[in-house]
Every structure is written in C-alpha cells, then in structure tokens.
Nucleic acid binder design. Structure first.
Length: 651
DNA sequence: TTACTGATCCTTTTT
DNA sequence: GGATCAGTAA
C-alpha cells in the first residue's frame, strides 16, 4: 500500500526520497530505522506537521512519545515552528509524564488519591529502608539498592508481586516487593516505574478508560523505540490497538538502556507484533548520515561491526558530508594531563572564536567530571555540567520540597519523616521509629498519628503536636490562596532555615535555597495555571539534561548516556581506557560489552565536525593510583582514522 | 538526642 | 576519594 508522495506539500521540501515517504505514509503501522544523524527528528516533526496540515488531523488526536523532557520540548518547538500555532493540543510527552497525566485523572479507579506523590530515587531508597527495617530483615543480605533494582526489573517486565514466580526468585524478595508496594500505597505515592506500571494496570482493569485514549490517539509516534521495555511496549500496544496507526523510530545500534529493562526485540519484532490483517507494516530505512564527517562515520561503522549480536539487516550508514578533520587520539601520561590537553584544545578553539556551546566533553561516569571541572576553573573557561548532583537532589532543596510535598499529600510518609526533625526539633530516631510503628499498626498516616499517638512520653507527644499544628497552619494558608512563593518563603523564615545553614557556614546551601525561590517564582510567572502539584511534578520528573542551556556560550560536560539525541561540532570523548570505557562491570559479559560498544558508537556519532578521543596511562581509581590500558574500542576503530601526530608517548 | 569520629563500602549508565 | 554508617561522648 504505497502512497503517492504529495510533491506539493512544503513540508516535504528539502527531504530525501525515503524521508519524504516516511513523512507522508501516515496510515497503518510504520517502522522507521533511522541511523545516527540521518534526520530522524526532522522526519518525526515533519510527519506530525504533515498529519495536521495535509491530513487535517486534529492535534489532540496525535500522541508523540519521547524519552526525555528535553526531546519532547525540542519536538514541540520544532513542530510549532513548522505549523505556527496550529499544533495546540498535541500530546508530545515522555512516557513518564504521560503516565502522571493520565493517572492524575483516573487515580481513584485503582484506589489512589488524585493528589498522589511521585517518589524519586532517593525517596524510593528511604522507603525501602523503612520496609527492610519493619520486616526485621538483614540489611546486608537485602541491600536497599539490590531490592530496588530487582523490583524495578519486575515492574519493567510488567510483573506485580503476585505475578512473580517465587520459585524463580528468593521468596523473601517477593515479600519485600509486596511490602514496598503497600508502603507506597499507604503514602499515596508512585515511584518512577509505577507511572508506567500502574498505568498499564489502570488500563487493564478499566477497559472503558483505555477506550477513551484509544479513541483519542488516532496517530501514535514513538521515538527511540530501541530503548523501550516490556511495559512501554505494552502501553503502545494497548493504545494503538484501535486505530493501528503507530509509527516507531529507532536504531538497534543505539540501544543503550538494556540495564533499565530496554528490550531490543521490541524493535526487531515490531513487524510481527503490530501488523494487522488489513494493514501490514511498512518499513523505511534512513541510512544517509548528514551529521558526521566521513572519518567519524567510518570509525563508527568499524567499531560497531565488532558487535556480533546485531540482528537486523540494515544497511551501513553512508556519509553525505565531505569536509573532514579526521579523528585525533591523545594518550596522556596521567588524568591531570589529559584534562590539561583537552583544556588547551578548547582554549585554542576559543581563540579561533568558536562558539563554546558547540563543544562537548563526554565521559562514561559522572565521577570523571571533577578533574575537568577543576581544570575549567583554572583556565577560566565557562562550562556547564549535566546530571551530576542535580539541583533538586541536593539535601537542602529536598528538605524544603518535602514540606511542600507533605502539604500536597498528607499521606506522604517519606516526606514527613524527612522534615519531622528538620530543622532539629528534638524528635530523634527513637521517637520517629515509635511513630512509624504506631502508624503502621493502626494504619493511620504518620502525620495524623502525631495527633493521637500514645506510645511516647508527654514531652515527645507535645513536640509531635506542635509539628502537627504548624502543618495545619501552613495548610490553611495554602488553602486560603497564599502563593507558592510566599508559602515557601514563610517556611524558610519561620523555621529559620537560612539561619540554620548560615550558622554552619554552609553558604552554598543558602545560595541554593535562594535559587529554589527563583525557580518557584519563575514557575509561577510562566505557568498559566501554577499549582503546588504542577511544581512538584516538574521538579521530580525533570532530569539533568532538561536544564541544558544552549544560549550560554559554555562548554558542556555530560555522560555518554545523556548525549543520546544531541549533536556538537567538537566532541571530546575522554577516559578511553579499559575498565572505564568499557566499564569494569561490563568486561565479563559479552552482552554488556556490546552495549558499551553501542554507547561508544552513540558518542562518536554526535560529532558534526571534529572528534577527539583521549585516555590516560595513570589514573586515580577509588583513590588509588592505577595503571590503565587503552580502551579496546580504539583498536577496533583502527589506526587509519586516528591522527598519529596527536599521539603522546610514555610517562 | 545530637554531633562527632573512624570504619567500611563502594558507583556505571536514568525516567 | 567520598558518602554513608555504627559507635561513642557530651
């Protein structure tokens, strides 16, 4: 069922033949295999615009799912640019935001309050910690991280506690899973995975609710489909099961999230899974790369060939660019020298008036950013880091957000215990444990239990009561219409929190809190209808990459994972050493090793102009000096593409 | 109850 | 090298 390409549409101008067909084929299931730099985003945005402009589809009937908020914002912006205001009502969203949005509407259908909280990683940790403690388990045997990872895995596989086969796993673990879910439920909280897991549950248990969305979303598009997991697959499957107009875009070679449950077979089996008797799957392959210099592309192709588990029969990427500065490799005597080398190169670029926002340093782990950060400061080069200690994860920020979260959702146990003794009120660990147990035994949320607890002495009782009354006072003010900014200011002042940090000479924290007030002010200014709920959701779902500020002339530093979907003129991939990249935890397992290689492939193909690889012979690992061996990926890329002049010799 | 000290375990990658 | 934790003194 090939369609005639509408040559008249301005939305097709400037696209190549395959791109044109991918844009204009809107009916039925469509698979777009899009190699790195092949104009994928362009195809998706033009396709959305095409649907609206040429096929007269109402924007409200289009769903476009991405993985990061940044990607979705970018997509929205570019569609807007193409359509000029006609795109209002489009659902361009991340999987998780979509989950939050739909769950807010129908939470009661699965026994949740619409004011539910969303727990991030650190809240999951403290909740799990409480669970292990309540269950009297050995925290060594049942490490928090391990339990959470397992549970996250279950949820990614769409398995509820009673669906996990205990014979396959430690039965205790399944008990922990059930108890953890119960704890979340008591707190009226969802964790990240729940935003998808519970959404699927909602749809399963309430076909009439699913039907609303099936009818609404006539056209569905999914970006980065190679990184979807079982639960995301199920969601797309459910939602598209009425109209069957589902278009997925992805690239097997760029799958880098299998550790999060992403399953490459989703994209490999798309044909089989989504074809209907009436509508077969159409497949388009974008294999011309418009981004990278030929040497980069050649190197990337050589590298990825070492992966034996590539299953699709897709063609090798072809270069369209001519200009080429080659690839350099610098082997530094030690990590400090590596950083200095990169600095001197960037300094040179700056001297040549290169806009520094076109320069990026990519590394495997966050820990590597520190040495570069120090060098940047020494050289006086402006920089920005993404994802390391995210703003909203700082302790002082979390404390205040916990007050706000508790105001929004009084059931939120984690937030309560976070603030009950901050600033110190003489309610220590012992009293907190008693409150927890009392709350648990009587099935009363801990906040309310503070009013009736009879298992503590009168002195502590009084402290509980005072907290409870202060809480109610704040809540009254919120309901009376006090703005979020004013309320937060009041909390900071009345609890003397700035003073508290000041006293401890923690001026950074004071500054961060001022910055928090700024973000709230900004939120209230920019949002049409600012709410406490909206602000909290934004602060928890936002990820490091979302704060990326292209307007600033700063060099950017980030992990390779964060770089997916981005492109830069000048790319530095640092720490090309065995044990670091590929990471030591992946050396033993060929599957993991292939994922590392794909990660390297992603990194290389971010390059628009010049790629520089580097590594050190000697590096601090866990505070111990260790001799490093150059990464095997360098060998796989091969000498011809590494400019020999840049080799540094010896120590 | 808190605040400090020394020991111990790590960290891969993220919505 | 650093975050987190158990143990101890005030």
């Amino acid at each position: 069922m090939s369609e005639a390409v509408n040559e008249e549409s301005p939305l097709l101008v400037g696209l190549n033949e395959v791109q044109k067909r991918a844009v204009s084929t809107v009916d039925g299931p469509v698979l777009i295999l899009a190699g790195a730099g092949s104009g994928k985003t362009r195809v998706i945005t033009h396709r959305i615009a095409y649907l609206i402009q040429e096929n007269q589809i109402n924007p409200e009937n289009i769903l476009a799912v991405t993985f990061t908020n940044k990607a979705s914002r970018e997509m929205k912006y570019r569609v807007e640019e193409l359509l000029g205001g006609m795109g209002k009502g489009l659902w361009v969203t991340t999987f998780h935001s979509m989950g939050a949005r739909v769950l807010r509407k129908h939470a009661s259908a699965i026994g949740y309050d619409r004011n539910f909280s969303i727990y991030d990683d650190s809240q999951q940790k403290s909740t799990m910690k409480a669970v292990i403690k309540l269950m009297n388990l050995d925290p060594k045997r049942y490490a928090i991280r391990y339990c959470l990872d397992m549970i996250s895995g279950f949820k990614a596989q769409s398995l509820a506690p009673d669906e996990v086969r205990p014979r396959d796993f430690d039965p205790k673990l399944v008990e922990i899973y059930a108890a953890y879910q119960e704890e979340l439920k008591q707190s009226q909280a969802f964790d990240f995975d729940d935003l998808l897991f519970q959404l699927v549950k909602l749809f399963r248990l309430n076909p009439e609710i699913l039907a609303i969305y099936q009818q609404q979303f006539e056209y569905i598009m999914v970006d980065e489909y190679q990184d979807t997991n079982v639960i995301q697959y199920q969601l797309i499957r459910m939602l598209s099961n009425l109209h069957h107009n589902v278009c997925v875009v992805g690239d097997e070679d760029q799958s880098i999230y299998s550790w999060r449950g992403a399953d490459i077979s989703n994209i490999l089996d798309f044909k089989k899974d989504f074809a209907t008797p009436e509508k077969g799957v159409l497949r388009f392959e974008l294999s011309i790369n418009y981004r990278c210099p030929p040497a980069c592309l050649e190197a990337a192709n050589l590298l990825i060939k070492n992966n034996l588990q590539r299953t699709s029969d897709k063609a090798e990427l072809m270069a369209s660019k001519q200009a080429d500065e080659g690839i350099s490799y610098y082997l530094a005597p030690n990590a400090q020298d590596e950083a200095d080398y990169v600095m001197s190169r960037i300094d040179q670029l700056s001297f040549e008036n290169v806009d520094l926002s076109t320069v990026v340093i990519l590394y495997r782990t966050h820990a590597q950013s520190r040495i570069f950060e120090q060098s940047f400061m020494r050289y006086g080069i402006p920089y920005q880091i993404f994802g390391n200690v995210r703003f909203f994860e700082r302790r002082e920020i979390r404390d205040i957000l916990a007050y706000l979260a508790l105001l929004h959702n009084p059931f939120d146990a984690d937030s309560l215990f976070r603030v009950v003794n901050f600033p110190p009120r003489g309610i220590g660990a012992t009293s907190q444990d008693k409150l927890r147990i009392f709350s648990h035994n009587h099935s009363i949320p801990p906040l309310l239990a503070m009013d009736g607890i009879d298992t503590v002495g009168p002195a502590v009782q009084k402290k509980f009561l005072m907290f409870y009354e202060y809480y109610n006072d704040l809540r009254d003010r919120l309901q009376a219409g006090t703005s979020l900014l004013d309320l937060t200011r009041a909390i900071l002042e009345e609890l003397e929190i700035l003073h508290y940090w000041d006293q401890k000479d923690e001026t950074d924290r004071v500054q961060n809190l001022q910055e928090l007030l700024n973000t709230i002010a900004e939120y209230e200014r920019e949002e049409e209808n600012p709410t406490l709920e909206g602000y909290l959701e934004k602060s928890v779902l936002i990820s490091g990459i979302d704060a990326l500020d292209e307007a600033q002339q700063n060099v950017t530093m980030m992990t390779l994972h964060n770089a997916k979907g981005l492109e830069y003129d000048h790319v530095f991939i640092v720490g090309m050493e065995e044990g670091l990249f590929p990471h030591r935890n992946s050396l033993e397992d060929s599957q993991n090793l292939e994922e590392e290689r794909r990660l390297c492939y992603v990194g290389i193909t971010r390059t628009m102009q010049k790629l520089t690889l580097s590594g050190a012979r000697l590096r601090d690992v866990y505070g111990q000096l260790s001799y490093q061996v150059p990464s095997r990926f360098l060998r796989e890329i091969g000498d011809p593409f590494l400019a020999p002049t840049d080799f540094a010799v010896g120590i």
